[in-house]
Design a binder for these strands. Structure first.
Length: 686
DNA sequence: ATCCCTCGAGTTCA
DNA sequence: CTCGAGGGAT
């Protein structure tokens, strides 16, 4: 970007940020915009650092969000409520350390008093509580840091806020902490909302903020908020003798101890750290706990424990120098789409793939995401060059959620499906398979090398020949060792070992692995054939119906040309039936099957499913199973006559939840499906 | 014709 | 995990 483009980008960023802020604060839109807002603000900050001449003191990004509402009484804070600077990586923590060490006198860095303190950063609403003579007299929101709203009545409904302090207490005290809702209470609340047809809350913070802004404290009371204290502000008034201490407070960690003694709830997960390595260890430790932590959190607050050092470092702008918030990676970020590429699948389907500037999201760096098909691109309105919002579905798969059209420059390009296959140059058609309305585009060339490669990969994966990955397959193909999947079974140790970068041992392993996997049940064999619409389940249905491959082939009378041949099989309708009929009528396919058998593939007969004790039961597996692998669990269920399905519905009998279950766990709760853990599952097996 | 549920197929990163 | 599409119930 040149300078004038940067300036335009800055202006647009400001506008977009303002729009999101408005959506959040005024229209009460769900705060899915939150991370996006942060992401854009960061970009703006970075650009302004590079080009300080575009800095605009009046621009909105320099003001603290959240003006006091008119409905509530405004309160001037006795001590300004600060916000924290963020660190988004360990590197930024080290930068911070470098900065503060420069500012501290050398003698302070010696000895044992230089130490950090780490605590959980709750994702709630920061509030300030004033106590006089041990009694809670006033509570306020942060507001703009100087002036907040008096929400005393609402705060009094929170059980974990003591109305009276435990002795000994000082004459006057200001406590800072976070008002928030537990995840469990959010779920309960949302359950009720669903039942009553009301919209669900996106997160605990929205509820906390919304509840405390209710004018009627009874509404706030219903929400069952919680409060965690984390700071004592006016420690000059909190004199040692008033607190029953021998000497004055010297560290931040000591404040936590005092808060506990005064009767506040203070989070137990916290640590004193001698150096940043220990800080990072704590950050990593909590990252694992975080998903199961009962409250929403967005990071770890790291502070210099020694209060004198805090004083030396002081405050710059609206944030203290002695404290920093380490933020865990956001779940939604923004990035720029550099290009859209095309992938060709086993069926010849063309799948567009968005390539974007690598960004860190939910713990990993992503650089591409599938766009599924043309319809999806049109729905999103995506063009090459656009700034997009990216998230990770189920914390794993990157997904383009939204296009920020407000940031367009006019240079964005629309993406078109190519007329010719990018690999084999044959014509691309929007093929209607059986149904009239297919959205996908296809390369129909049966010899398309991309298609064939995908097929080989599918074949070895169904045969579970793990030693042969995509790269190796490709190499064997390029070397001329294999022309089709059947050739795999003729590979020799000598062939493989003759290639550079393959040793005797790995060649041996590959050949042995192939030998071991030659025997295959009929159902898997059918699946491996890659018949359109015939996957794992359908293949099983067919295998059980016929029993042997001969019967399947014989059943297809080559003389007749109708395709309702398989309709009497359970779960097979016109589309699959036609696909099967077409497949077994193709001479090439029949020859391929013969070749496989000639090359040593042994097809085991399918047996009728025994009616086990799981007959008629559908299982869904979620989370990480620790007592057995997913594969094993699946096999056990199948062998007892049950079924394993991929998604939860009201037909699901049991959801087996391991550690850190995903969205399936939630939908099970929503649908009232029985959730069991691994132990209960094992008990059922006996 | 229209629902809901499953299945198939393609997908990402560590 | 997502989206499209097939199968079956209504």
């Amino acid at each position: 970007m040149d300078k004038s483009e940067t300036q335009k980008r800055i202006i647009k960023l400001r506008r977009e940020i303002a729009r999101l802020r408005n959506a959040y604060h005024v229209e009460n839109a769900p705060n899915i915009t939150d991370d996006v807002y942060d992401s854009l603000t960061r970009e703006l900050k970075a650009l302004l650092e590079e080009y300080p001449e575009f800095y605009d003191a009046n621009a909105r990004e320099h003001r603290v969000a959240g003006k006091p509402l008119d409905k509530f009484v405004k309160v001037k804070h006795q001590n300004r409520m600060l916000s924290l600077n963020d660190a988004f990586s360990y590197e930024e923590l080290y930068d911070w350390e470098k900065r503060i060490k420069k500012l501290l006198p050398a003698e302070k860095l010696q000895g044992s008093s230089f130490r950090y303190f780490c605590e959980v950063k709750f994702d709630g609403l920061a509030v300030s509580l004033i106590y006089k003579k041990g009694k809670f007299v006033q509570g306020a929101t942060r507001g703009d840091g100087f002036i907040g709203e008096d929400i005393t009545q609402n705060l009094k409904t929170i059980n974990s806020i003591p109305l009276k302090l435990k002795k000994p207490y000082p004459l006057s005290l200001e406590v800072r902490g976070e008002a928030l809702l537990s995840k469990a209470n959010l779920d309960k609340l949302n359950k009720i909302n669903i039942r009553e047809g009301k919209p669900v809350f996106a997160n605990t913070r929205n509820v906390a903020a919304g509840s405390l802004r209710q004018l009627d404290p009874r509404l706030a009371a219903e929400r069952k908020l919680d409060f965690f204290a984390y700071d004592i502000v006016n420690r000059r008034e909190a004199r040692p003798n008033a607190l029953g201490l021998a000497s004055r407070l010297e560290t931040h960690s000591a404040k936590h101890e005092i808060l506990r003694k005064l009767g506040f709830k203070v989070e137990k997960i916290e640590v004193k750290a001698e150096n940043l390595e220990e800080v990072i260890a704590f950050i990593k430790k909590f990252e694992k706990i975080r998903p199961g932590f009962p409250y929403g959190t967005d990071g770890i607050v790291v502070s210099l424990d020694d209060l004198k050092m805090q004083e030396i470092l002081g405050v710059v702008g609206k944030a203290p120098r002695f404290m920093v918030a380490f933020k865990y990676p956001a779940e939604r970020v923004t990035t720029m789409v550099k290009n859209v590429l095309i992938n060709i699948g086993r069926t010849g389907v063309l799948t567009p793939l968005a390539i974007f500037e690598p960004v860190s999201v939910a713990g990993s760096t992503v650089s591409k995401a599938t766009l599924h098909n043309m319809d999806q691109i049109e729905r999103l309105g995506l063009r090459i060059g656009d700034t997009v919002v990216v998230e990770k579905a189920g914390d794993v798969i990157p997904k383009v959620v939204e296009v920020l059209t407000g940031l367009r420059t006019g240079k964005e390009k629309k993406f078109k499906i190519p007329a010719l296959c990018p690999v084999c140059k044959s014509k691309i058609v929007k093929k209607q398979l059986i149904n009239q309305s297919s959205v996908a585009y296809f390369c129909l060339n049966p010899k398309c090398s991309a298609k064939n490669e995908r097929y080989l990969e599918h074949f070895v994966s169904v045969f579970e020949i793990y030693e042969l990955g995509p790269k190796i397959l490709r190499r064997f193909k390029d070397e001329g060792f294999i022309t089709d999947a059947a050739d795999i079974f003729l590979l020799t140790k000598e062939d493989i070992a003759s290639l550079p970068r393959f040793g005797e041992k790995s060649a041996e392993n590959i050949v042995q692995e192939i030998e071991n996997k030659k025997k295959i049940p009929l159902s898997r064999f059918l699946w491996a054939l890659g018949i359109l619409h015939v996957g794992e389940e359908t293949a099983r249905d067919i295998a059980i119906h016929f029993g042997t491959l001969e019967k399947i082939i014989l059943s297809t009378n080559p003389g007749k040309n109708f395709s309702n041949f398989y309709l009497d099989i359970e779960n097979i309708g016109p589309a699959v039936s036609k696909s099967l009929f077409d497949f077994f009528h193709d001479k090439n396919n029949l020859n391929f099957i013969k070749k496989l058998e000639k090359n040593g593939v042994i097809i085991e007969k399918a047996e009728k499913k025994k009616a086990g004790k799981f007959a008629g039961f559908n299982f869904v597996l979620t989370g990480t199973l620790s007592l057995m692998s997913r594969e094993v669990a699946k096999e056990k269920i199948l062998s007892l006559g049950g079924k394993v399905v991929g998604s939860v519905s009201k037909n699901t009998s049991y959801v087996v939840a391991g550690a850190l279950p995903g969205s399936k766990f939630k939908s099970a709760q929503k649908l009232g499906v029985k959730v069991i853990d691994e132990k209960e599952f094992l008990n059922m097996l006996d």
